[in-house]
């Protein structure tokens, strides 16, 4: 199962809701303003690090670069490009978009 999150975790509770519903072994892809959830030293970093014990977290690199946060990504988060995004979608049986 692939989950995508495209909202800032500081503005909406979508990331939190997503992590609550993501079962062990599933993939979470952060895109658009969702990539702010992939960063070190924030009030949500702890929650994301904790989740990474049971799910794999990805972030879309072009969205990371656009926002100037390429040097702040949490260790263990995998960066993907648009091709990688497509691969994730095709590799998983279903995609839930947390809008």
């Amino acid at each position: 199962m692939l989950h995508t999150v495209n909202k800032s975790p500081f503005e909406r509770n979508t990331l939190e809701s997503c992590l609550r519903h993501a079962k062990k072994g599933s993939a979470v892809l952060l895109i658009e303003d969702g990539v702010y959830g992939a960063l070190k030293g924030t009030t949500v970093s702890g929650k994301v690090s904790e989740a990474m014990k049971s799910v794999t977290v990805y972030a879309l690199q072009p969205d990371i670069e656009a926002r100037g946060v390429q040097n702040r990504v949490l260790d263990g988060i995998k960066l993907v490009d648009y091709g990688g995004f497509v691969d994730l979608v095709t590799e998983h049986n279903a995609t839930q978009s947390w809008l």
């Binding site: 800032s8 702010y36 656009a66 926002r67 100037g68």
Partner: peptide
């Protein structure tokens, strides 16, 4: 304030988006 602070973060590069 809030996420508005991200508007003025250094190093933004939108080429790929």
């Amino acid at each position: 304030l809030d996420d508005g602070v991200y508007q003025i973060v250094k190093g933004q590069d939108t080429k790929s988006v």
